[in-house]
Simulated scan of single mutants.
Amino acid sequence: MSKAERTRQFIIETSAPLINKKGMAGTSLRDIMEATKLAKGGIYGNFENKEEICMESFLYLRSQLASKLDIAASKGKSAKEKLFNLLEVYGNGKNMVEGCPILNFGTEADDTNPVMREQVKKAILSAQKRFFNIVEEGIQNKELSSEINSEHYSIRVFAMIEGGILCRKVFGNNDQMNIVLDGIKTEFERYVL
């Protein structure tokens, strides 16, 4: 990696948690300069504008979260273990200290930034597909009843988890998230053969 590439990556990795917390509109160039200890020229020598930093920050955060989730799922031997491992990642508030980037960036970009909205949409579909694949694999391996609707279940699970993440941020505790996760597990257990 060249020095310019390392600097660019440093700006992304340093800015990403800040933008995830304060929002795209709420994070100023001055905030990014203070976090990175770089001058304006150092920032704009690597990025066209703040929007590009925001986009790259989202893609970075999304990649980090997806990696944690994929690793957790891969450690499971059965569909149940894979799902429960994923739920453990989502349930651990330390994995998303400033909230879920999909929720944070998606809320802000829904009407104001169509390019970011498309990236968030891809992230949502990818997260839902992760759940879908686990359920489908469970059905194929005769671990789960074919009565479970993989598509509907994956959409519901994702939406409930994102709601739980929002409640965790607003209430400052995991109480409601734990109820959500318990409900997801209970529903899943009904289909285990």
Rank of each mutant, 00 (worst) to 15 (best):
R8K: 10
V170A: 02
D110H: 14
A127N: 03
K94H: 08
A16K: 05
R168M: 14
I161D: 06
L125R: 05
I19Y: 04
V120D: 02
K3E: 11
I179P: 06
H152P: 04
V89D: 00
F188P: 00
N178Y: 12
S57T: 12
I179G: 00
T7I: 09
E34P: 04
P17Q: 08
N85R: 04
L181R: 11
D182H: 09
V192L: 05
K40S: 14
E162R: 05
M177G: 03
C54I: 11
Q119G: 02
R168E: 09
M116P: 01
K94F: 15
V115L: 12
N92E: 11
E51W: 04
S146F: 14
I124Q: 14
R190W: 11
G23M: 02
G91E: 03
E189Q: 10
A35Y: 05
K142S: 08
F158H: 06
N85A: 07
G26D: 03
D31M: 04
K21A: 10
F84M: 02
E5P: 07
I124E: 12
K82I: 00
L103A: 12
G138P: 06
V192E: 02
V135G: 01
G106I: 15
K80G: 00
N95M: 14
N174G: 08
V135H: 03
G163H: 11
S78M: 03
A73H: 01
I184K: 00
A66Q: 04
F84I: 09
I12A: 01
Q119H: 10
V192C: 05
M24D: 01
V192Q: 02
F171I: 00
D110L: 15
S126K: 02
M33Y: 02
L193P: 03
K22V: 08
A4L: 11
V97M: 08
F158L: 12
T14D: 04
I148G: 00
T14N: 05
R8C: 08
D110G: 07
R62D: 11
T112I: 12
G106M: 14
I71M: 10
N133K: 09
N174W: 09
N178R: 13
I53H: 13
I19D: 07
F158R: 03
L125C: 07
P17D: 09
G76P: 01
E13A: 03
I134V: 02
Q128T: 01
F171L: 09
A72Q: 10
G183S: 14
N173V: 10
L87N: 00
G26W: 02
G172E: 05
E137A: 05
E48F: 15
C167I: 10
S126F: 13
S57R: 03
S126H: 07
Q128S: 01
L83P: 04
T7R: 09
S67L: 06
Q9M: 13
G76T: 01
A127L: 10
F132G: 00
L29H: 06
F105C: 05
P114I: 08
F132V: 05
L125S: 07
A39W: 12
Y60W: 07
E162W: 05
E34D: 15
K3I: 15
E5T: 15
K129F: 13
N85L: 13
N174Q: 10
F188T: 00
A39L: 14
N46Q: 15
N178K: 12
V89C: 03
